[in-house]
Amino acid sequence: MKRLGEAWQGFKVGTWLGWQIESNWTEPFLFAIYSVIKPIAGVLILVFMYLIVAQGGLTNPLFPQVFLGTTLYLYVVNALSGISWAVQDDREHYGMLKYVYMAPMHLYGYLLGRGMAKTLIATISVLITLSFGIAFLRVRLSFVNPGLFGIALVLGLAALAFYGILLAGVSLLIARHGWVVGDVVAGGLYLLCGAAFPISLLPWPFRALGLSLPPTYWFEALRRALLGKGLNPELADLPDSAILLILAGTTFLGIALSLAVFRVAERIAVHRGLLDMQTMY
C-alpha cells in the first residue's frame, strides 16, 4: 500500500512537472499555436501528396484512414519519445534524476506522470487536428462503435505508456544514443503498424513483425470505431472482439515486460552509478 502511495505521489509530481517543462517556456497562446502547427503540418504533407497523385484527391477512400492513423500516431510519438526523453533530460540536462530518485516517491510512477503530461499535450493536438480534418478536409467521423472506441483508446494508451517505461529503462543504461531511442522506436511503429498505409504493402518479415505489435490492432480498432472499417486486409476477417482481445493480451504482456525490464535496468543503473551520469552527449 505504501509503495502504491509513493507511485501515486510520483505520478502526480511527474505530471505537474512535465506539464510545466513542456508549456511554461512561453505564453499560453503561443504554446497553443505551437502544439497545433506541428501536427497539422504533418497532416498537410499527406494532403498534398494525395492531391498531387491520388485518384479523386481527398475523396480517395484511403484518405480518411490515413488521416486518422497519422493523427492518432501523435499519441505514439509523444508517449514513447516523451517518457524515454524524460530520463535523458532529467539526468543529463537538468542533473535532477538523482534527486528524483532520492525523493519519497516511486521513479516508475514519476516517469508515468511525465508521460501523462505528454499524453495531455498529444490529446490537445489530436482533438484540434481531428477538428481541422472534419472542418477543412471533409473527413467524416461517424462514431460507429463508441464502446469499441473507448476500450481500444484506453488499452492502446496504456500499452504506449508502458512501452515508454520500457524505453526509459533502456535509457537509464545508455548515454550516447538516449536522444534517439524513443524517436527511432516511434518511427519504426509508424512504418510497421499501418498508421499511414496498409501493412500488406510491406515485405512479409516486416508485415509479420507489424502483426505482432499492439499499435497495429489499436489503429485498426479505432478506425473501425470511428470510420466503420479498418485499413488492413490481413485483419479484415477478424471480428471487433478478436481485435480487442489481441490488443488487451499484447498490452498486458507489454506491461509485464516493461515492469521486468525497468526493474532490471534500474537495479543495474544504481549498481553502476549511472543515475547521476552526465556525459555531455
Binding site: L46, M49, Y50, V53, A54, Q55, N60, L62, V66, V184, G187, G188, Y190, L191, A195, A196, F197, P198, L201, L202
Partner: peptide, 14 residues
C-alpha cells in the same frame, strides 16, 4: 524509416 513510410504511402495511392 520516415522516407520508407512516405514511399509506401505513394505506392498505396498508385
Amino acid at each position: 524509416l520516415q522516407v520508407s513510410a512516405y514511399v509506401y504511402i505513394y505506392r498505396a495511392i498508385g
